[in-house]
């Protein structure tokens, strides 16, 4: 299963080993782990709760993975995203991409994260000393995702 939503932690090493399955065609493994920090926008964060839209989340992630596989010459892709309560230092998300060469694997991994941040239905609520607050979407995440849009054909 290329996409998993779960409350429990993940072991990136074990996931990568499982994904490679001793495949001798793989020459590159690119991975990303997103981690819960103890502050955001200058405010301490003691805890966060990750909510999602069951059903749509899986579909949205599978679509992103399919698009990455169509755009880059990669082999296997794994996305694991946690939901529920998380504390600073906890792992949030894991993306692993395998391929023959690093360039394609790096690009696909970054693309998946950029699209996940703007298209997969997850929401973070942070606990701060001033109370709970929903995290606001960032324009910089939209800009990061837009980098991957196909170039617009110039009007002749």
């Amino acid at each position: 299963m290329a996409v998993r939503i779960q409350t429990k932690d993940f072991d990136a090493g074990a996931e990568i080993t499982a994904l490679r399955r001793g495949n001798p065609k793989i020459g590159a493994v690119a991975s990303f782990i997103g981690v819960c920090r103890d502050a955001s926008d200058g405010t301490a964060v003691t805890k966060m709760t990750l909510e999602h839209y069951p059903g749509m989340t899986e579909k949205a992630l599978e679509k992103i993975v399919a698009e990455a596989k169509a755009r880059w010459d990669v082999m296997e892709v794994l996305v694991v995203h946690r939901v529920g309560e998380l504390k600073p230092t906890d792992q949030i998300v894991l993306v692993v991409v395998t391929g023959a060469h690093r360039g394609e694997a790096f690009a696909a991994c970054e693309f998946i994260m950029d699209y996940l941040k703007t298209r997969a239905p997850f929401w973070k609520k942070e606990e701060t000393p001033q109370g709970a607050r929903w995290v606001e979407a960032r324009a910089s995440d939209d800009e990061a995702a837009q980098r991957w849009e196909p170039p617009k054909s110039s009007a002749a």
Binding site: L50, K59, L116, K117, F122, E136
Partner: peptide, 29 residues
């Protein structure tokens, strides 16, 4: 807005039996 769990636009049609979800911009990852 999502219609039947796919991102939708204001002009997306709504049909009998559809599931329409309203939510804020996403903040996962």
């Amino acid at each position: 807005v999502a219609v039947n769990q796919e991102m939708a636009q204001p002009t997306t049609p709504v049909k009998p039996g559809d599931e329409i979800a309203f939510f804020p911009p996403v903040t996962g990852g």
